[in-house]
């Protein structure tokens, strides 16, 4: 089974939105990662959610730095069987 790239990215954005503490922050894939104030616990929860929903193992490099939310989402998408090219 494969998943649509844009829909899956939007789905991961929603997982991030549900985890971060400040619900008033407006963000999209282009938002700098610092702008969403995502902490280490949020990241663990997002990855766990993706693993549960998509039935995959997400093994992000431990020292990886991300400039934007999109970079983080794209890093996760690499572990999901996706249709379509990277945006």
């Amino acid at each position: 089974m494969t998943y649509d790239r844009d829909k899956t990215a939007a789905q991961i954005l929603e997982y991030i939105r549900s985890e971060i503490q400040d619900k008033d922050i407006v963000f999209d894939l282009k938002t700098p990662i610092e702008g969403v104030k995502i902490d280490s616990i949020d990241v663990i929860h997002v990855i766990f959610k993706v693993e549960e929903v998509f039935g995959v193992a997400v093994n992000l490099p431990q020292d990886q730095k991300y400039d934007t939310v999109g970079d983080f989402v794209n890093a996760i998408l690499k572990f999901i069987p996706i249709e379509g090219k990277a945006s």
Binding site: I41, I44, H45, E51, E52
Partner: peptide, 8 residues
């Protein structure tokens, strides 16, 4: 249930 423990 054969599921992973909670991530934290």
């Amino acid at each position: 249930e054969g599921k992973k423990p909670a991530p934290l």
